[in-house]
């Protein structure tokens, strides 16, 4: 088969850019959760500061996609790859923002001690971390199967999220003094849950690339 070298090289570059951005977002999330576990505001602040780089990467990916649409007139799979890349970049950017939200919560809790040892939130974060890995792997491998599995993984995340909220609710009724931190932690759960939703969106984009079909994984 004849190759379209410049387009193929650019599509490869697009994929690498997305993977690099995905890795950075994943790292930001890990750092935010590690900072939360020990309430390390300095570590959390680094996550906040690092978000500019993620935003820049999103713009670079968007610019590349726009350039390819304008100059290469992509169709069929090429077009779907480019359109999906723009969506995936937007999802990763939102995931990065949610990691920053978690990090900002840690900064706000500076000087406090945790009202309880964190168990479910790190567990939830671990599931999310796997979801991000799987979403990116589905993207690289064009794997519909892996993309569809994200829906099941997201259900598990939603389940933990509900139990976190219930636990915090019970805790606040027993100890009203912890309401403020309990609310913050509930929001952290919410941010994590949102990241999971964005990971499923990436799965939907993968399915679109492979089959051209729309799907709903969450």
């Amino acid at each position: 088969m004849q190759q379209r070298n410049s387009l193929d090289v650019a599509l490869k570059d697009l994929q690498l850019k997305l993977l690099r951005m995905g890795a950075d977002v994943q790292e930001a999330l890990r750092e935010a959760v590690e900072a939360l576990k020990v309430l390390d505001a300095t570590r959390a602040q680094k996550v906040v500061d690092g978000d500019k780089s993620v935003n820049r990467q999103e713009h670079a990916i968007e610019d590349l996609c726009i350039r390819l649409i304008a100059t290469q007139q992509p169709v069929a799979t090429d077009l779907r790859k480019i359109v999906a890349a723009m969506r995936i970049a937007a999802d990763l950017e939102r995931m990065g923002d949610n990691a920053v939200d978690i990090a900002k919560s840690v900064v706000r809790m500076n000087g406090e001690t945790l009202i309880k040892p964190l168990i479910d939130i790190p567990k939830m974060a671990g599931l999310i971390d796997t979801m991000i890995t799987n979403a990116l792997r589905a993207y690289v491998d064009n794997s519909v199967e892996l993309a569809q599995k994200l829906a099941t993984e997201d259900d598990a995340v939603d389940h933990i999220y509900r139990s976190i909220v219930e636990e915090l609710f019970t805790l606040t009724s027993e100890k009203p003094t912890v309401i403020s931190q309990a609310m913050t932690l509930a929001f952290v759960g919410r941010y994590l849950e949102r990241i999971g939703d964005h990971a499923t969106n990436i799965g939907e984009s993968v399915i679109y690339i492979v089959s051209g079909e729309r799907s709903d994984l969450n």
Partner: peptide, 10 residues
């Protein structure tokens, strides 16, 4: 074959 043709791959 349609895909290959319209994407300029043959």
């Amino acid at each position: 074959r349609t895909e290959d043709y319209i994407t300029g791959r043959f």
